[in-house]
Amino acid sequence: MRKTQKLLHKVADLKIFSPFKAVFETIDGIVYGTPHVTPGAPHFLDHIEIKRFMIFAVVALIPTTVASVYFFGVHVLWMILTSYIVGGIVEVSFALIRKREIEEGFLVTGLIFPLILPPTLPLWAVAIGAFFGIMFGKEIFGGTGRNIFNPALVGRLFITMAFPEIMSARWQVPFVDTITSATPLTLFNAEGTLTGLKELLLGVGLQTGAGSMGEVFRIGIIAGGIFLILAKVTDWKIPIFYLGSVAVFSWILNMVNPQVAPPAFQLLSGGLLFGAFFMATDPVTSPYTRSGKVIFGVMAGILTVLIRSFAGYAEGVMFSIILMNGMTPLIDHMIMENKYRKSAL
């Protein structure tokens, strides 16, 4: 137990503060996490952990959010607002109809969702995606902490399939008002042009569309991701094994077939960093077993490279994370079964 935490407990134990016990418990939970570990299998129901994850995730997302407003202008703010309003309406109406508490889950989803969209997307498309993602990605499964798939990705996936023309031709060069259908990834697939790594890292000096609005300022994403790992909010295994498997797998494929992009470009283009640090790590939709996390990361990496290089889509992060979300219960089940069998012998 850290010194500051001890101090907090001492203050909380003072008699004057006894009516505010719940407040102190919340602060304690948010800042230090909970010492209690649920004994059974569904660890994902731990409420305090989720609340802590939410608030830290929002903090970690600040750099990339600010950068996207800086790069792409005010429309970004309107998109974030739309996403929050629509998500909030769905959340509140479900809470009212089902007579449950309003959950803070959509704080993160409502921010992540616009960040993975093309920066000039019309607001009605944002609204449809937010509605679909929160409704079919989360509420139907019982709300925050009970969903199987990442709700923001479900929304993104749905509008990608519903409105392919809008979703593939709405990219924007940072600071420039032209709308383009090219991103570093599509450019590589079409002409084999590799965008410079420095431009990719900073998002400045790009000649093509940059990509989804939250994925452009990659230094900020890396910083936010490392912050989350250091704060012990997310586990390091999934992002590291995800990125590592993309690097290794694309390195091998690139040697056999140069039409597959080289590892450094793979790592720094598209939504990979954003997905690996902020979406694949969601504790609710990823395995709770340790080896499960490794399997999750490695398989997501392989799927990403496969889809990027051989399928009709230039970007495979969204598909791979949703697919691995779907496989998560199976992975956990198999690992637990394996363990029981070993301990029984």
Binding site: F136, V154, L157, I307, F310, A311, Y313, G316, F319, G326
Partner: peptide, 17 residues
């Protein structure tokens, strides 16, 4: 149905492969 729908969406990612 909904689970299958979401999985079907993600399987569309393989199209063109």
């Amino acid at each position: 149905m909904v689970i299958s729908g979401i999985l079907a969406l993600s399987f569309l990612g393989f199209s063109g492969m």
